[in-house]
Design a protein around this nucleic acid. Structure first.
Lengths: 252, 252
DNA sequence: AGGCATTCTTGACACATATCAACGCATTGC
DNA sequence: GCAATGCGTTGATATGTGTCAAGAATGCCT
């Protein structure tokens, strides 16, 4: 149980928070942005019954690996994870970062096999949602079915945004867009939209944005020089959000 | 009705084919790769009842536009479509090509609004599947629910493959991968895996693969010189499929 | 606290693809 | 049959990002 305190510390920025001792969806502070969204409290209870908790991951630990049998999707409770595929020549393509309240693993449904790997970027806790149970529950709960369709659809649109970013945007635009995305997701969790700690390394950012570490580093330096960002290693402060939005050149 | 004959001509390479006069899933020659896959014939009938047909599109006609209200997903019956988003500065990112038997429009579910536009690359016929009906039917038919989850998941994995392609692969690798993808999809429909006509322009290929027209053209020329492909405008013959596979450097 | 390994930054240079430009070829309509 | 138009090809040059290399900062382990 103490491990959960540590995780909440991580997530909350070292402020102790009793909410994180919860072990059910009903009083999870993420339930308004997570899977229970749009469910009645009776239904939340039913969803809660199928969810398996207590799967804390250490930094760098795998949640699942490309090729593993697909059994469950996962909701992030605390910490951050990255999903990625490894190319034939061993390079890593990060396909997404997952923050608390977000769902990952849906790419495994199509072939009953995980199409990507997922790894914790820092100590992280996840809720495991066995897919067969979720399917049964969805058939009985129209709202849940709809919401899960929506979540998958959102994953599609986000992937398409990334496709566009990789295909059409410069290094600066890509980095700016990522900063805005993280900012918006922080805001959704009532954290600061302008000041945060990046959970991922420069290498991960590069592997996500299709850039080398060096380019990522140079972009941060330039944006710092332009007084758009204050960059102190992983600590980021957005000084000129309109400037960043303008630079990103994407509706985000 | 005559319009359907024309479309079947297009699809069948100008061989008349009575199968294309069908108007229901039960005897559609695509039903083994399309939505009815894995359904009992009674269930196929129920699915068939919600499907709206007779929406033939002329070349360049829009099926839906980014921002339109989302009502339905669509199955391609004949012809080919492209899905794309337009960036703020007016450039076009093609997010996918859709061949007969394939489903498009699923990116609209998340916000009840189409996140991309879809346009016919040639005369095309689609089956319209109203999403609200599909939801109801899915709740009652576990196989359909599962299959639709799988279709969405496949869209996710395909987008992730494209992300990797754009991020990590050279121009030649990208073009080779697209040729293999089209080849495989032709084979799935019992058409030639080595000789086909590209339904899309060089511009579309470029906008899909994140390349300029000139680069696409040069790559085709190089592959022709290496005797991997015979390229005659849109007519493609794969002369050395192992060579192309080797060049693509992706498991496809 | 010190030392080692990892991550990050910065610089010089190389290279793949974009850009700009010209031209050829096919299709369409008159 | 011929002009007009759009699409595709090819060449010359420009440029953004990758590559290689070195050094600085950070964090981890003893």
């Amino acid at each position: 149980m103490t491990i959960f305190v540590t995780q909440s510390d991580e997530e909350q920025g070292f402020r102790p928070c009793t909410h994180d001792f919860q072990t059910n969806c009903g009083n999870c502070r993420l339930n308004s942005i997570c899977l229970p969204l749009a469910l009645e409290s009776d239904d939340i209870q039913l969803l809660d019954d199928i969810i398996q908790r207590g799967k804390p991951l250490q930094k760098n630990q795998f949640l699942y690996r490309e090729g593993d049998d697909f059994q469950s999707v996962f909701a992030v409770r605390s910490g951050t994870l990255k999903a990625f595929r490894t190319t034939d020549d061993g390079r890593e393509q990060v396909t997404g970062f997952y923050f608390p309240g977000e769902i990952l693993g849906m790419d495994g449904i199509s072939n009953n096999m995980h199409a990507s790997s997922a790894r914790a970027l820092e100590t992280a806790a996840v809720c495991e949602i066995p897919f067969s149970s979720l399917e049964k529950l969805s058939a009985a709960m129209p709202n849940l079915q709809r919401h899960f369709f929506q979540l998958m659809s959102r994953e599609i649109t986000e992937d398409q945004q990334l496709i566009t970013l990789l295909s059409k945007n410069s290094a600066e635009e890509r980095v700016a867009a990522l900063m805005l995305s993280i900012s918006a997701r922080n805001a959704r969790r009532k954290l600061s939209a302008t000041k945060f700690r990046l959970p991922m390394s420069r290498v991960d950012i590069g592997n996500y944005l299709g850039l080398t570490v060096e380019t990522v580093s140079r972009v941060f330096s330039r944006m710092q020089k332009l007084e758009m960002l204050a960059v102190d290693n992983k600590e980021i402060e957005i000084l000129d959000i309109d400037g960043v939005r303008n630079l990103a050149n994407v509706s985000n």
